[in-house]
Design a protein around this nucleic acid. Structure first.
Lengths: 358, 358
DNA sequence: CGTACCTTTGTGTGCGTACACAGAGCGGAT
DNA sequence: ATCCGCTCTGTGTACGCACACAAAGGTACG
C-alpha cells in the first residue's frame, strides 16, 4: 500500500560509497577533482538507488536568481498576447520561491528590424532564459543563433520552427487545427454548396505562418471530403475598418447564397459584429481565440464555434519549462502541442484558466 | 522591467519589528507566548510588506511526512478510474520532495456496505488527506462526517455533493455537459426525427448521479431547441453481453429510422462495435470518456464524438490540491469544473496527458 | 530578600543541498 | 630532509524556515 520509502539523501549515498558528501556532490555536478575509482563507485550507487535530489533543498542552497525575458509582438488590452502574458505572470508568481523574475520586451510586428532590435536589448541584459514567438523566420533565426552562442535557452510559443531547435515549443498543431475546423464547419454547413474564408491582410502580409498552416489543413480536409464545395476567399484590412464594411457589403451582395464562413485569425468578431448589425442570423461562422469580442459574439449567436489555443496555459507552461530545465534540472519535452478545443456558447464557461490554479 | 525585488525573509521582518525571528515565527503560526504589543507590531509589518514565506524552505524545515489515501470504485485495466489513478501517481511523483505518499483503497460499487467498510480502513490509517468519488450519497455522508470529526480534509473527484462541503471538487458540470452533448448530437443528426439514448443498467441501478445529470441537461436542450424530436431509451445490461446484442437487434428492427444515438456512460464502444460488426456506417454515435475501445471506435468511424472529462488531470489536480492546502498552505478553489472537451478523430491526438508534464 | 513560577523573548540546531576552503597524501626537485 | 605543487578528499557554513530549548524579566508569596 505505502509507495514511498524514506527518501535517499546525498549523505546516504556518501556513506554507502565510503566517501564524503563533498565527493558525491562533485560527481553529481560532474565537477573535476574526483578520482576515477570513487567516481565509478558513486555513480554505481546513484544508478542502483535511482537517487533523485531534493530539488527544493537544492534550489534553496544554490540561492541563485534567475532572470527570464520574453519577446512578443506589441499589442493592446484584450488581445491574444495579453492572455499569454497573464499565464507567464501566474507562473512567475507560483515559482517566486525560486527567485525568478521576468522582463518584457516587445516589437512592432509590421516594422522590419524591430524584432532584432529588441532582441539585441535582450542580449545586453543577459537573461537566463528567453521565451519568444517566432513570427518572422529570418530575424528569429539571427536572434536565436546569438542566444545559442551565449548559451541562453529559448522557448518558442504559439508557433514553431523546429529547425531552430528551441528548448521547447508550446502551441497548437496549426495544420491539424485547420483540418479539425474544416470538419466542424462542414457539420455546421451541412448541404451548403458554398463557403467563404475571411482573411486579414496586414501591411501586405497574408498572415502569420500559423494562419497559413491552418488554411492548409482546412483545404486538405475539404479536398478529401467534399471536393465539390465552392470556397471563396475575401481579403479584409484591419487598419481600415470603414473599408472592411463595404468589402463585406459587396461580397454578400455578389454572393447571396454563401451562408457559412471561417477566419483563421482571431478577428472573427469583425464578421460576427457585422452580421449582428445587419440582423443576419442565418450565417454560420467559425473563428479562433477567446477574445472578449469573440466571446460576446459566441453568446450572441453570431459566431457558432471558436477554436482556442489556450494562450494562458501556453504562457504558464513556457515559464514552467524554463524553471524545470534551469532550476530543477528536469528533462523537458521539446514539442508540446496544445489540445484543439472547440468552444461553443454551451461549454465556454469552463474554459477560463482551466487548470492554472490561483 | 524587473518585477521581483529581493524576497523578504523572516529575519528582515524581525529586524524591522525590533524582535527576534522566534517571535515572528510564533506570530506567523499564531502560537502562544507573544505579548499583545509585539504581536500587533509584527502583524503590521507582515501586512505592510505582504510577506510570503518561502514554502520550499518551510517544507524542508518542518520535515513532515504526509500520507494521502484515495477511495475509488474497484475497476479493471483500461477503465476510466485507471486514468484517474495515473494522474494521482504523476502528482505524487512530482511532489515527492515534499515527502508525500499515497495509499489506495477500493470498494465494490454494487455491493452495499463495501464503501463504508473501506472507509473505516482509511480512518484506521489516519491519513492526512483523502480523495474520493462520492458515488453513493448516504454512505459518503457517513464517511465524510467521520473524516470531518477527525479533522482530515477530503477532496471529491468526478462528481460532487457540495452539501457535504469537501475541501475541493474536481470534475465536470455533468448537467451542462449533457446540454452541450445535445447541441453536438443535434448537429450530427441535422433533420433526423428520431434518436436513441442507450442506458447501462447495473444491478438494477439506473446509473450514477453523474449520468443522470447528463441526461437531464440533454433533455433540457432538446426540449428548448427541438421539442418535436422523438427520443427513445434503450436499457442495456453490461453483465450479459449476449443479451445486449439481441436487445440491440430487436430495437433496430423495430426502429429502422433511428440513425443517431448517445450514451451517457463510458461504454459507447458497445454500440460502436455492434455497428462495426453489422457493417452499418450510417449511424451517428456519441459517448463519454477516452477508453481504449472508445478511441478505437472513434478512429474506425463508428463513434463520431466523445466528450472527455480529463480523468488524469482530475487525479493530478486533486493531489496537487491537498499539497497546496496542507503543505504550502495556499488557498484552494473549492469548485473546479473541468472543461467540456469534444473529441473527434481529427483532434484526438492532442488529448493524451495534455499539460501533465513528465 | 530569596525562591518559585509564569510570561515573553532570544538563540541554536537541523532539514538536504551547494560550494568554498582546508587538509591529506604523494611524487619530484632542491 | 625540506619544500613545493599537484590531485584528491573531508569539513564547515550558508540558504530560509520550524521548533526545541534557554534565558530574561516580572510577579507573588513565604
Amino acid at each position: 500500500m505505502e509507495k514511498q520509502q524514506d527518501r535517499i539523501r546525498i549523505k546516504d549515498i556518501a556513506q554507502m560509497a565510503g566517501v564524503s558528501v563533498g565527493t558525491v556532490d562533485r560527481v553529481l555536478h560532474s565537477r573535476s577533482g574526483v578520482s576515477e575509482s570513487s567516481r565509478i563507485k558513486v555513480e554505481e550507487i546513484l544508478e542502483k538507488l535511482n537517487y533523485q535530489p531534493n530539488m527544493y533543498a537544492s534550489a534553496l542552497a544554490s540561492n541563485k536568481k534567475y532572470r527570464f525575458a520574453y519577446l512578443l509582438p506589441s499589442h493592446n488590452e484584450g488581445d491574444y498576447w495579453k492572455d499569454v502574458e497573464r499565464g507567464m505572470q501566474q507562473a512567475i508568481a507560483r515559482f517566486s520561491d525560486f527567485n525568478v523574475s521576468l522582463s518584457d520586451y516587445y516589437y512592432d510586428q509590421y516594422e522590419s528590424g524591430a524584432f532584432i532590435e529588441s532582441g539585441m536589448r535582450i542580449l545586453d541584459a543577459q537573461p537566463d532564459g528567453v521565451i519568444l514567438s517566432p513570427t518572422v523566420e529570418e530575424e528569429t533565426e539571427r536572434f536565436v543563433n546569438l542566444l545559442r552562442e551565449a548559451g541562453i535557452p529559448y522557448v518558442f510559443i504559439d508557433s514553431n520552427i523546429s529547425r531552430l531547435e528551441p528548448l521547447a515549443f508550446y502551441g497548437q498543431h496549426a495544420q491539424r487545427s485547420g483540418y479539425f475546423a474544416a470538419r466542424m464547419l462542414r457539420l455546421l454547413a451541412k448541404g451548403e454548396p458554398e463557403i467563404v474564408i475571411f482573411r486579414q491582410i496586414n501591411e501586405g502580409r497574408l498572415g502569420s505562418n500559423q494562419q497559413l498552416h491552418r488554411e492548409e489543413g482546412f483545404y486538405e480536409y475539404m479536398k478529401e471530403h467534399c471536393p465539390e464545395l465552392k470556397m471563396w476567399e475575401l481579403n479584409l484590412y484591419a487598419k481600415q475598418p470603414g473599408e472592411d464594411a463595404s468589402l463585406l457589403d459587396d461580397f454578400f451582395a455578389a454572393h447571396p447564397n454563401v451562408k457559412c464562413g471561417i477566419t483563421f485569425n482571431s478577428k472573427a468578431y469583425i464578421i460576427g459584429e457585422y452580421m449582428q448589425r445587419h440582423g443576419r442570423t442565418d450565417f454560420h461562422l467559425m473563428g479562433y481565440d477567446l477574445l472578449r469580442r469573440n466571446v460576446a459574439c459566441l453568446k450572441a449567436g453570431s459566431i457558432d464555434f471558436v477554436i482556442t489555443q489556450q494562450p494562458t496555459v501556453q504562457g504558464y507552461n513556457s515559464i514552467e519549462c524554463l524553471c524545470n530545465h534551469l532550476i530543477l534540472r528536469k528533462k523537458v519535452k521539446d514539442c508540446n502541442y496544445m489540445p484543439i478545443n472547440l468552444i461553443t456558447t454551451e461549454n465556454i464557461d469552463f474554459y477560463f484558466d482551466a487548470h492554472v490554479n490561483e
